[in-house]
Every structure is written in C-alpha cells, then in structure tokens.
Computed example of a mutant assay.
Amino acid sequence: MRVEIWSDINCPWCYIGKARFEKALERFPHREDVEIVHRSFELDPTAPAEARPVVPLIAAKYGIGLDRAEAAEQGIAASARDEGLTYRTEGRDAANSFDMHRLLHFAEEHGRRAQLLDVLYRANFADERSAFAPGRLLELAVEAGLDAGAAAHVLADRTAYADAVREDEATASAMGATGVPFFVFDRRLGVSGAQPPATFTAALEQAWDSRVPVPLLTGADTTAESCGPDGCALP
C-alpha cells in the first residue's frame, strides 16, 4: 500500500501530523508493506526568500494583536510537545520554501528524502538557528547525508527539480487539496489535516481492506488542524 503525504516545511501542523501518522503506522500490523511517499506543497509560493518573524506574520494574516499571535504559537507548541516534538516559540521565522522542496526531490533520488525532511522540520521548528539563514540549507543537506557539491549545484540552478515540485502541487490541486498536511492512501482514500493517531489507524485499516474507491475517510474530523493559503489553524 502506498501513502502519499503532501506537506510544507513552513506548516507546523505538517510537523505535528507527521508525528501522529507515524505513531499510527508504528502500530499498524502491515507497516512493512506500506510505502511512504512525501510530496511537495507550497503554502505561499509568492513568499519572499528573506526570512521574516513568524509571530508578526500570524498577527497580520489573521488581523489579530501580537499577544494573540504569540498565544496561538504557544498553543501549537503545546500540541507539538504532546507528540514528543520540540517546538521553539520565540525567534522563529518563515520564508519561501521552494528551494527546500527542490532539494527534497534531489534527496529522493539518493534515498535520503525522509532524512532531509526530518532535518528540515527540526531546523525550522526546534533549532535556535533559522532554517532560512544564508548557507543553512546546504548545511542541512549535508547533515541529511547528501553530497555537498551536488546539493550546492541543485540549489544554484533554480530550474533543477522545479518541474517535480510543480507536478506534486498540480496533483494535489487536482485531488482537491487546499491545505496540508494531506494524506492519500493508494489514491483511494484521503485524510486532511493533523488528525489524531486513532484516525490515521482507521485510515490505514480502511485503505488496506477496501477495494472500493472512497473519497474521504468516514467519520474523520473535517476541521482537523491544517495549513492552507490563508494560514494555519490556530488553537
């Protein structure tokens, strides 16, 4: 069985949703027969390359004060910590993620996509140093086990793997995905948002047993937290 996961490094609910899904997968009796494929999705393709502080971005996005934006970040951090994840609420920033997605496709060719994805999530949500600092992405690529020279060549060529990123995004759009995380099981069952592990368990079981196309998991919480073009769900 194949599970495709569309996500963006800028999306905190993707970070949390990945951990919740992995908890469900760990308990799934057929987990050795499940292929995980990570797909690209940019929450804001127009975002500038220069990093900007997250809290003011949240405040501007939702038209709320900085205090409420900070409280929202604290709420997301609490959800992350419930899953055993580190989440830094102060000094975090965001920027255009296109180069990250291009590098993830390069990493896939070398069997290191999962490793790079974990490194990028940790760098963006847990590390003190920004994932978007100059030269940082190349450092993270090497940390994930990629060759420094080859990774630098990919980053220098803005066309490298660009089509692969756009193809992932076009596929998500064709499936009706408007936000992430978005999980698709054998192209027959879709689960949107950072659902609880129990929901992912039900999805794995239903997808494994089902031979009839089903658009959405019956009983899933359609309001589960996710991130979309208009922003991320606030606690």
Score class of each variant (00 low, 15 high):
A77G: 02
P213K: 02
D93E: 12
R20V: 04
R27A: 15
A107K: 04
I58Q: 05
G111A: 03
L216R: 15
D221E: 05
K23P: 11
A69M: 02
L234F: 11
S226I: 12
V142A: 08
I36Q: 12
M1K: 08
E167R: 12
T178K: 14
D186M: 08
N10P: 07
E42Y: 04
F125C: 00
P181R: 07
A131E: 01
H110M: 05
A49Y: 15
Q74S: 11
Y161W: 08
T218S: 14
P45M: 05
Y15E: 01
I9V: 15
C227G: 13
A150D: 09
V55D: 03
A174N: 10
L66M: 11
A172Q: 08
A78Q: 09
A131N: 04
G135P: 01
E108C: 14
I16Q: 04
R158D: 12
R31V: 08
A172I: 07
T178C: 12
P53W: 05
R166I: 11
V34L: 06
Y121Q: 06
E143M: 05
G91D: 00
A156L: 05
K61P: 09
Y121A: 01
R2D: 14
H38C: 11
L116C: 00
G176P: 00
T86P: 10
C227F: 08
D163L: 08
Q74I: 10
R20S: 07
R27I: 07
A224Q: 07
Q195T: 06
V180Q: 09
S192G: 07
A174C: 11
V154G: 00
D44W: 09
L120M: 07
A151T: 00
L117Q: 15
G63I: 07
D67W: 08
R188D: 12
A164P: 07
V184P: 10
F21G: 02
A126Y: 00
D168V: 02
G228D: 09
A24M: 04
A131H: 04
M175G: 14
D8Q: 03
P197C: 08
A194T: 03
V55P: 05
Q206G: 12
L204K: 03
A71Q: 08
A150Q: 10
H101R: 03
V3R: 07
F200R: 06
S192Y: 09
R81F: 00
D127R: 01
E70W: 12
L117M: 13
L155D: 06
A47R: 06
N124C: 10
S79Y: 13
C232N: 04
L138Q: 05
W13S: 01
P134Q: 04
E73Q: 14
P45T: 00
E50R: 10
R52K: 13
A170D: 13
R68F: 09
C14E: 06
E205T: 14
R122K: 12
I36D: 08
R211V: 13
S226C: 15
R52C: 11
D168M: 01
A152T: 05
P215I: 02
